[in-house]
């Protein structure tokens, strides 16, 4: 049973790689925020799975709860930024610098 959860964890980690790809590559900031949010959500699940592997879930629930809440705050804060600065779709904030870059 423990093996099953371990490999479940591994698969989730691999899935996280896809979200990480979106986070890293962008191209817009919204993609990044979404990607980070997905990573956060997966982390909550993984926390519980790790708890199951250790056989002491009750100790890990608190962390997962706190985690989910703070993830919420981070996402809201990141979104809130755009009520002040309206440059969501502007090009030039990617990994590479593109000509005609952003004007803040």
């Amino acid at each position: 049973m423990s093996d099953y959860f371990t490999w479940l964890g591994v698969v989730l980690c691999l899935l996280m790689l896809m979200a990480l790809y979106r986070t890293v590559i962008g191209p817009t900031i919204i993609d990044r925020i979404m990607g980070a949010n997905v990573i956060g959500t997966k982390t909550v699940v993984l926390l519980i799975i790790i708890g199951t592997i250790f056989g002491r879930v009750e100790m890990f629930v608190d962390i997962a709860l706190a985690y989910a809440m703070l993830n919420f705050i981070v996402t809201i804060a990141a979104s809130r930024y755009f009520t002040h600065h309206k440059n969501i779709l502007q090009e030039g904030y990617g990994l590479r610098h593109r000509p005609g870059g952003p004007k803040d």
């Binding site: 962008g26 900031i29 980070a36 990573i39």
Partner: peptide
């Protein structure tokens, strides 16, 4: 590497999420 400070902050947030998982997995709850 990323050229956008907000993006860097977001990725740094993801970095911290992963850190948290790493500690849990090593038993440092």
């Amino acid at each position: 590497v990323v050229k956008d400070l907000l993006g860097a902050a977001v990725i740094f947030g993801a970095y911290s999420f992963l850190m948290c998982l790493l500690w849990t997995e090593m038993g440092a709850v």
